[in-house]
């Protein structure tokens, strides 16, 4: 069974005036149908860039240097522009962090959703409008008919994010990428949105990639977790496994910061050249001489569970 999405050896660099930034390095994972993957990492870890690369929306000066992004077997990176438009918003959809700035303030929300429909399907305006209304109801917006003609600034943050989700689901995508969908929302609303996403995932039968820096929300929605650090995957595995027994000191640190509010000392590095050692070593409590001598490969520690650490069996909860 071919996975829905397969990323192989993705490398992305940003060519800025200050130097070349290695945003994503040799990154790989695969996502089966109807499953939810959570990508966790601090800001700057490369997770958003990876997500954007799936739809080839990386802003310059970023460039995808190497790699393949296989969606249902076809490499997105080699597709011509005309084919790309058929995938964006149609087979793969994406929602972003701040719904206030992600929606065009000058158009009604109804219009923007209907636009997503007409972009890919030849339907009448009436038809698009009723589809948009149906979507508004699917994302549980109260008084959908009234809200259809509302402008983004007239809605609350949570409702705007629902609108974004409705827009993303308009063409029944097989894959939904949610880039920090709850970060800009109130805590109470966050839970609602996550529940909504989980529900819609089942209803619409799609795969979801949830990107966040907060390990805490992963458990709500995801089946599989991938932890990113400095543009690399450092651990990947089923949610239960990761939460019960993390096998990478970084993941361990993340869990601890969520549960016990103990932060990980130090800062995420911005790499300007290829790493010659484990990138997490400077902040790692398990770091040893071996870590500084070479970058560890991904070790298979359990079924479907990998870790990029020399000392993966010494990480304990």
């Amino acid at each position: 069974m071919i996975p829905l999405l397969e990323i192989k050896n993705l490398t992305i660099r940003f060519f800025t005036d200050d130097g070349v930034i290695h945003a994503v390095e040799d990154f790989s994972f695969s996502l089966p149908k109807n499953k939810t993957l959570g990508i966790v990492g601090e800001s700057g870890s490369g997770k958003s860039v990876t997500a954007l690369s799936i739809l080839r929306l990386i802003p310059s000066p970023g460039k995808i240097l190497r790699g393949q992004i296989l969606f249902e077997g076809t490499d997105i990176l080699t597709l011509p522009e005309s084919e790309l438009y058929k995938i964006r918003g149609n087979r793969i959809s994406m929602i972003f962090q701040d719904p206030m700035t992600s929606l065009n303030p000058l158009f009604t929300v109804g219009y923007q959703i209907a636009e997503a429909v007409t972009a890919h399907q030849k339907v009448s305006r009436q038809e698009a409008k009723s589809r948009a209304l149906a979507l508004l109801e699917a994302v549980k917006i109260p008084e959908a008919k009234k809200r259809f003609n509302a402008y983004p600034h007239q809605l609350s943050g949570g409702m705007r994010q629902r609108v974004m989700i409705a827009m993303a689901l308009s063409c029944n995508p097989s894959l939904l990428i949610a880039d920090e969908p709850t970060t800009a929302l109130d805590v109470t609303v966050q839970k609602q949105i996550l529940e909504l996403i989980a529900e819609l995932q089942k209803d619409f039968q799609m795969s979801v990639i949830l990107i966040t820096h907060n390990l805490g929300i992963i458990s709500e929605v995801c089946d599989q977790v991938l932890v990113m650090y400095a543009g690399r995957c450092v651990e990947e595995g089923p949610v239960s496994s990761i939460f019960r027994a993390p096998r990478h000191p970084y993941t361990f640190g993340l869990l601890r910061s969520v549960e016990k509010m103990i932060p990980i000392p130090g800062q995420l590095p911005i790499l300007k050249e290829s790493a010659v050692a484990c990138t997490f070593a400077p902040r790692c409590f398990l770091a040893a001489e071996k870590c500084r001598q070479g970058e560890p490969p991904l070790f298979d520690v359990e079924e479907n569970h990998q870790s990029r650490c020399w000392f993966h069996d010494q990480v304990q909860i």
């Binding site: 739809l55 438009y85 964006r88 918003g89 959809s93 700035t101 065009n104 974004m164």
Partner: peptide
């Protein structure tokens, strides 16, 4: 702006993104 990225992510042609949004 972010909403331009959203428009592109929706699959709108670049020309529509520029002239409509």
């Amino acid at each position: 702006a972010e909403y331009i990225q959203t428009a592109r992510a929706k699959g709108l042609r670049e020309r529509i993104v520029i002239f409509r949004h």
